[in-house]
């Protein structure tokens, strides 16, 4: 919560001090720079610019530019999975036609972030590493079961998207790994802008549904953002194996509302947001189910 202080803003020269921008050529070089302890990564630079806007000191004296590292800007469809480089801009992610066919929830979420000018700058890695519970891409990636491939000076490891808070300052997200959807999978993203103008979402919900050969639900996932500890992967245990009808949608939406803790802010009270989480969970699930049931080759 921001509170306006009295008097003029304090003049602190550290907040306007220039930071050195380092441009490593390789990932190993970048990791060595970050291991020094006085450096922070910069992707699109949005978080760093916001710090300046808020009169906060730079995150570190040295900023290590990572968006242009080899492979960081690539989206690659492998035989078993998809990798999205941490330096991929959200605008490019939203426009990727392969991903739009495989996991529309991800391209929809990326395309719903802020404005076009900001999406041209923001990198996927930076958006995730910012650990803002209202950010859109982490919600979608949580629903599809994506993992973060993380590299540090001491080695590589894998984190779930919901474990981004465990990233250490000397580590970088290298890429995000998404499983390939099975046949008859649908996914969808819903972002509720309660005032109809651009702002942080009142609620944002991602849904993914995989159907079995007989049309029953084989896999079901819902993730909710803009809530305490978000994105939250909703526990839908026991809701698979049935037909994807309105009873299932209602039961899953109830779980989403019961399993999340929204907070009151300018976009609505916590009580209202709980109702909206249920409503937009229903909408996201219905879209995802329709896409899963659509014949192969149609809009999914």
């Amino acid at each position: 919560m921001t509170t306006l202080g009295f008097g003029s803003l304090p003049v602190d020269t550290t907040t306007t001090a220039p930071a050195a921008l380092l441009t490593p050529r390789t990932l190993d070089e970048a990791l060595r720079m970050l291991a020094g302890g006085d450096a922070a990564p910069v992707g699109g630079g949005v978080a760093h610019v916001l710090r300046r806007h808020d009169h906060l000191a730079p995150a570190a004296a040295k900023l290590v530019s990572v968006a242009g590292l080899p492979g960081f800007g690539d989206i690659t469809v492998h035989a078993e999975h998809v990798t999205i480089g941490a330096g991929v801009r959200l605008g490019a992610l939203a426009a990727d036609e392969r991903l739009a066919r495989l996991w529309p929830v991800v391209t929809e979420a990326a395309g719903s972030v802020a404005t076009g000018r900001i999406r041209r700058l923001v990198t996927l890695g930076g958006n995730i590493a910012a650990r803002d519970e209202s950010h859109d891409p982490p919600v979608a990636l949580t629903a599809v079961g994506a993992a973060l491939a993380v590299r540090g000076a001491t080695g590589a490891r894998t984190l779930a998207v919901t474990e981004a808070d465990r990233l250490r300052p000397d580590e970088l997200i290298e890429h995000v790994r998404l499983p390939l959807p099975t046949a008859r999978t649908g996914s969808a993203y819903e972002k509720f802008l309660v005032r109809g103008v651009w702002e942080y979402a009142c609620v944002n919900v991602a849904a993914a549904v995989a159907l079995a050969e007989d049309g029953t639900v084989r896999q079901l996932a819902l993730a909710v953002g803009s809530v305490a500890g978000g994105p939250v992967a909703v526990d839908l245990m026991g809701l698979t194996g049935v037909r994807p009808d309105r009873h299932l949608v209602a039961a899953a939406a109830d779980r989403a509302a019961a399993g999340t803790t929204p907070y009151s802010d300018v976009t609505g009270s916590a009580a209202y947001k709980t109702r909206m989480i249920a409503e937009f969970s229903r909408r996201a699930l219905i879209s995802a189910i329709r896409r899963a049931e659509a014949p192969e080759g149609e809009d999914r």
Partner: peptide, 24 residues
């Protein structure tokens, strides 16, 4: 929407105090 607490606006910035845009 202007929200007040203890005599001060709680969100003194235009990212929360939304002006109408062409979209609305």
């Amino acid at each position: 929407r202007f929200d007040w607490r203890d005599g001060a606006p709680t969100r003194p910035n235009f990212s929360d105090y939304k002006l109408p845009t062409a979209g609305v």
